[in-house]
Design a binder for these strands. Structure first.
Length: 424
RNA sequence: GGAGAGGUGGCUGAGUGGUUGAAAGCGCUCCCCUGCUAAGGGAGUAUAGGGUAAACCCCUAUCGAGGGUUCGAAUCCCUCCCUCUCCGCCA
C-alpha cells in the first residue's frame, strides 16, 4: 500500500512512476473520492464533537440534579444524524481502501524500463554453461523410472503434482538441508517453522490479496483460509502489528515451506516435468530493516541466494526485472536464472525483492526509533534461496553424464553420502 | 468436543455507564544531581485520520473483531476470533 499522504502531495510524481510499470492511475476517481471523503469526514467529526460536548453537559447536569430533557432531545437528533453520516462515510472509506489497495508499489529509479520479461536487464553472469559432448537429456528423461513419477502425482491428485522417489527424493532433501544450513550457519539467518495455511489478513499484508486470489488455493471450511503460496506470507506476517526495538534489527529469517499455487493463467506453460507445479518446496529468505538499509539488504540477500548456486556450481545469471515485469508489491526485483541444458536457456530459480515499506504499511510492521522516539515503518526484503524443485531439476540436468547418471556437486556430497546418483 | 476464566498502551497491570486515551509500575527519550558507576530528582513518551503544505495547537476514532442498547460504553447485551485452566479424544 502506498502512503496516501504522499499520494495526495506528490500526485504527479507518483502517477509518472506508476505509468512506468504500465499501471493507469485513475486520477479523476481518486480526486473525486478524496474530496468527498474530506468533506464528509470533517462534517461528521464536527457533529461528533458537538455530541460529545452535549453528552458531557448532560452528565454534568445530572450530577447537579438539573433537568436534562431538552439537551437529551438535541442529542438524540444528533446521534441519528451521525449514524447515517457514519454509514455513508464507511462505505466511502471502503471504496477508497479498495482503490488504494489495488495500486502497486512505486518502482526504484534504477529499475530498467520495459514492457515485459523480454526487456529485463542482465546484471551479471556466473560461470558458463557446460559444453556437452553428447546430447543432454532433460530432467524427466533422467528421472524416468528412477525417481520422478509424474503419473503417480496425477493419480493421487491431478496434473502438475509430482512424486519423488529414491535418490531423487533424497537429492531434494539433501538440497533442502544444505540450503538451510548455509543460510543459518554462513549467512546469519534465524530458522523458523510456520503454518502452511494462512488467513486473509496475512495475505492482505504481503499483497497476495485482494488482487491475486485466483493464484491461491482456498480452503472450503468455515474460516477463510488459504494454502500458502510462498513462505513470504507466513514469515513476513510474523512482523504484522509488531513494533520492534531497533537493537533487534535487522531481522533475518530463513524458512522452508511447501508452496501451493493454482498456476491460473499458465495453461500450456511448462507442462512437462517438475518446472511448474501446484506444489513445490522452497527455502525463503526474509529480512526486515530500517528504510535507509533496504537497498543494501536487497544486494546482500541476493548474494545469499547466489551463494547457493555458486556452491552448487550451477551457471546462472542475475537480471533486474524491468518496469513492465516487476511484481505488484515490489520496488525492485532481481531474478536469479539458472542454466537449463535441455532448454538451452536460463530459467528463474529465485526472485529477490525490496518491498520498501509497501508491505509494512499494509501490515503495520514498525520499529521504534529511540533517537527521536518515533515509530517508523520497516522495510521488507525477501527472496528464494532457492526454489527446491527447480534446483533438483538444474542439478540433474547440469551434472548428467552420458550414461544417464548424475555426478553430485562437491558441496552436496556430505549431505547425500554419495558422489554419483542414478547410475543403474 | 464438554466446562470454566480471560483478551486494556512497547511490556506488566488497575479500571463495571459520565473530562478514562485510559491509574500505577517497568521500559524508553531529554534534562538535573552525586568525580565515574550504583542510585536519586524533574519533564516527556500510543496509533491512525482530519483541520493544513508544515509547526504549534485543535478535533475525531481506536481498550481482541463486528454488531446492538444509551444523550454518553473499556465498562451492559449479542455474534465471532483468540488465549489460559480442567475433562475427553488424538499424531
Amino acid at each position: 500500500m502506498l502512503d496516501s499522504k504522499k499520494l495526495r502531495k506528490d500526485t504527479e510524481e507518483t502517477i509518472l512512476n506508476l505509468n512506468r510499470r504500465g499501471f493507469h492511475f485513475d486520477l479523476n476517481k481518486w480526486e473525486k473520492l478524496e474530496s468527498q471523503r474530506k468533506e464528509l469526514q470533517s462534517f461528521n467529526e464536527n457533529q461528533q464533537s458537538k455530541l460529545n460536548n452535549l453528552s458531557k453537559q448532560i452528565g454534568q447536569a445530572k450530577k447537579e440534579k438539573e433537568d436534562t430533557e431538552g439537551l437529551q432531545k438535541d442529542a438524540t437528533k444528533l446521534t441519528t444524524e451521525i449514524k447515517e453520516l457514519t454509514k455513508k462515510l464507511d462505505k466511502l472509506l471502503d471504496e477508497i481502501n479498495d482503490f488504494v489497495m489495488s495500486v502497486p508499489n512505486l518502482i526504484d529509479e534504477d529499475v530498467p524500463d520495459g514492457k515485459d520479461e523480454t526487456e529485463n536487464l542482465e546484471i551479471r553472469k556466473y560461470s558458463s554453461p557446460r559444453k556437452f559432448n553428447f546430447t543432454p537429456k532433460d530432467h524427466l528423461e533422467l528421472g524416468d523410472n528412477k525417481g520422478i513419477d509424474m503419473e503417480a502425482g496425477a493419480k493421487i491428485t491431478g496434473s502438475r503434482f509430482k512424486v519423488l522417489k529414491k535418490e531423487i527424493a533424497q537429492l531434494q532433501r539433501a538440497l533442502l538441508n544444505f540450503m538451510l544450513d548455509t543460510h543459518v550457519g554462513d549467512h546469519g539467518y534465524e530458522e523458523v517453522y510456520v503454518p502452511y495455511i494462512v488467513n486473509q489478513d496475512s495475505l492482505l499484508g504481503t499483497g497476495q490479496l485482494p488482487k491475486f486470489e485466483e493464484d491461491l488455493f482456498k480452503l472450503d471450511g468455515k474460516n477463510p483460509f488459504y494454502l500458502t503460496s510462498t513462505a513470504e506470507v507466513p514469515v513476513t506476517n510474523l512482523l504484522r502489528d509488531e513494533i520492534l526495538e531497533s537493537n533487534n534489527l535487522p531481522v533475518k529469517y530463513v524458512c522452508h515451506t511447501p508452496c501451493f499455487r493454482s498456476e491460473a493463467g499458465s495453461y500450456g506453460k511448462d507442462t512437462k516435468g517438475i518446472m511448474r507445479l501446484h506444489q513445490f518446496e522452497k527455502v525463503e529468505l526474509v529480512q526486515a530493516v530500517e528504510s535507509s538499509d533496504s537497498e543494501e539488504a536487497l544486494e546482500e540477500l541476493t548474494g545469499h541466494a547466489e551463494a547457493i548456486l555458486k556452491k552448487l556450481e550451477l551457471p546462472y545469471r542475475v537480471v533486474s526485472l524491468c518496469s513492465g515485469d516487476i511484481g505488484f508489491s515490489s520496488a525492485k526485483t532481481y531474478d536469479l536464472e539458472v542454466w537449463i541444458p535441455s532448454q538451452e536457456t536460463y530459467r528463474e530459480i529465485s526472485s529477490c525483492s525490496n518491498f520498501r515499506d509497501f508491505q509494512a504499511r499494509r501490515m503495520k510492521a514498525r520499529w521504534k526509533n529511540n533517537k527521536d522516539n518515533s515509530t517508523e515503518l520497516l522495510n521488507t526484503i525477501n527472496g528464494s534461496g532457492l526454489a527446491l524443485s527447480r534446483t533438483v531439476l538444474a542439478v540433474l540436468e547440469n551434472f548428467q553424464e552420458e550414461d544417464g547418471s548424475v555426478t553430485v556437486p562437491d558441496s552436496l556430497r556430505s549431505y547425500l553420502g554419495k558422489d554419483k546418483i542414478l547410475s543403474f
